[in-house]
Write a protein that binds this DNA or RNA. Structure first.
Lengths: 333, 333
DNA sequence: TTGAAAGCGGTACCAA
DNA sequence: TTGGTACCGCTTTCAA
């Protein structure tokens, strides 16, 4: 910039104004500056600018697991929208570790990010970083997992209702003993899905049976496999299994195949997430759609709005949609 | 920082030194500073620091498509390693658009990133940004798709050999007419896989048949579906199909099922990538493993090395591994 | 061991 | 419409 100023015999101020398309600069001067800038391959130093303005064109997103299909679609949604506004997105992985999560938020604050999108790993929000963010006027949008004590911006799916749909569907298909392989207690979504499961049973006058509910630690397909074996070998096995995620359903499939049990005739299965895999399994897995890209896009929109006006909490709950495929539809008999 | 300095009646310089654990600061002073910093919830301004040092702790990664499983594993590899060194990773999506790609690189240069990891969308490297990067001393590591005219750091898979393995395997299984659904010509990996296909045929004295090679525009499952129909309805249909990616193989599966053709007995299928899905298809898809996480980790390692010493080009080619599953193994007859 | 001052590359304010 | 100058928060050099 100084180069340009010197060569053109104008002040740095003027150059800055020209480059930023401010109004108050002579037409000739502007032209000259812009031209020379191009010639010199001038590229603006975003760091300096954001230091001065104490506002960067960077937003941060923190997700529990990057290679997970759902999260990668959320990321895609955020990045594609952010790119349109020339915002840069930094991405970090909390690995379901609350300590890491708050460290990462600290780092992002230090980077002066304009906003943060977070899918928290625990069911309660860490108030200390919430305050730090408020102090620094950095808006936060939560995604997918929303702690019950949080009242700011968020975008999520109606997990409760989704689970209800899934279980209701199984009941309508004539399944009598429906098991649920759920996620850990400190996950808000696992809890909501579990509650939906209970509610659907209740509404259909089916007694809740504790022995039909299993809790995963890692929500892995291995656990799905293990719990399915346990369930099917019990004295009074279920005839359907609703899992907290498609990934767990993968394990369920493997276990049932190994035991020569037919899906859906012997055991019905419904997953959750509409992961890429689910539509290519044999039989195709009935599941709940979780529109990651839309969720990411909307989270970014909320952030944008929050930059512009100090609005009240923006909250969006996507309605759950049941995708009925093969794993839950019994052959007519 | 000024707050701390004033409260402690020391200079800002001293505070800076204490916080950065420099040697030349009194033990008492250091203790006091660190303590007060914690009390005040001081978080360092990375922007200011990186402006002054003209070196940020940020690296950028640019990928063609974020929700693609392979790329999301590469991203995971990069982020998890970068996080260990307290490096922040920005992620952008080129959407296979060369113009966008160079714009994004420009933005990253403006951000003063310490380094860039890129999976380029075209088979030739854009020399103008290569120069810009050199001028700014920003190291670049290419990943997966490596243009032939590029001689810097890179990490990739041996696609050529992988394709050869795949086709050789099909030949050994007794398939006679092996089709190839390939990717576009300007993709280095599609080209390498195609060459591997040709080479395997040659080595086994099988004549190359132009009518058995189809070229995708988008490398989508729809194209796989469409080309499979075209191939199987031709006068002299193939008895095996090798696809440029697992995604395309998905379409192949759908088409063959619709035509009541049995995999692998009527038609053998081999994919490429070892995507998450491939192991859960029916039948399980034989494919080539593409270790995304390792590739990402190594790309980051190369970057780190490049920061430290101005080494010569670091290049790693992962050997391809054939995962023989069900889609290519004929029942004994 | 400590401090003063310069400056990284911009932007904003005030004066001309 | 332009220019001068202070300053964003931190690091570095030089001097004390």
């Amino acid at each position: 910039m100084r180069d340009i100023a010197e060569k053109l015999n104008v002040s740095i101020t003027t150059v800055s104004r020209a480059l930023n398309n401010k109004m108050d600069v002579g037409e000739k001067t502007r032209k000259a500056v812009l031209e020379l800038a191009k010639d010199l391959d001038y590229s603006p130093n975003a760091i300096a600018s954001s230091l001065r303005k104490s506002k960067s064109n960077v937003i941060g997103i923190i997700l529990p697991r990057l290679e997970h299909y759902f999260f990668s679609t959320v990321l895609k949604g955020v990045v594609s929208y952010a790119q349109k506004d020339n915002f840069i997105v930094t991405v970090s992985e909390s690995s379901h570790n609350p300590k890491k999560e708050s460290d990462l938020i600290g780092e992002l604050i230090g980077m002066n990010v304009s906003g943060i999108i977070l899918s928290p790993c625990r069911n309660e929000i860490n108030l200390s970083y919430l305050n730090a963010l408020k102090q620094n006027k950095i808006p936060l949008v939560l995604v997918d997992r929303i702690p019950t004590n949080y009242h700011g911006h968020y975008v999520r799916l109606n997990d409760y209702h989704g689970a209800q749909l899934a279980v209701k569907h199984l009941i309508q298909q004539g399944y009598k003993r429906i098991a649920h392989i759920r996620g850990h207690e400190y996950s808000s979504i696992a809890e909501a899905r579990y509650q939906g499961y209970c509610q659907a049973l209740k509404l259909n006058d089916i007694d809740y049976d504790l022995s039909l509910v299993k809790t995963c630690e890692f929500v892995s397909s291995e656990e799905g496999y293990y719990f399915t074996k346990e369930l099917m070998l019990s004295p009074n096995p279920p005839d359907a299994i609703f899992t907290v995620s498609d990934e767990v359903a993968l394990g369920v499939y493997n276990a049932l195949k190994e035991m020569k049990l037919h899906i859906p005739n012997d055991v019905g299965v419904v997953g959750f997430s509409n992961s890429e895999v689910s539509n290519y399994l044999c039989p195709k897995l009935t599941t709940i759609d979780q529109p990651g890209i839309r969720i990411g896009e909307m989270a970014y929109e909320f952030l944008r709005n929050a930059f512009e006006n100090n609005e009240t909490a923006q909250q969006k709950i996507f309605e759950a949609k049941l995708l009925i495929r093969e794993s839950s539809v019994r052959a007519k008999r």
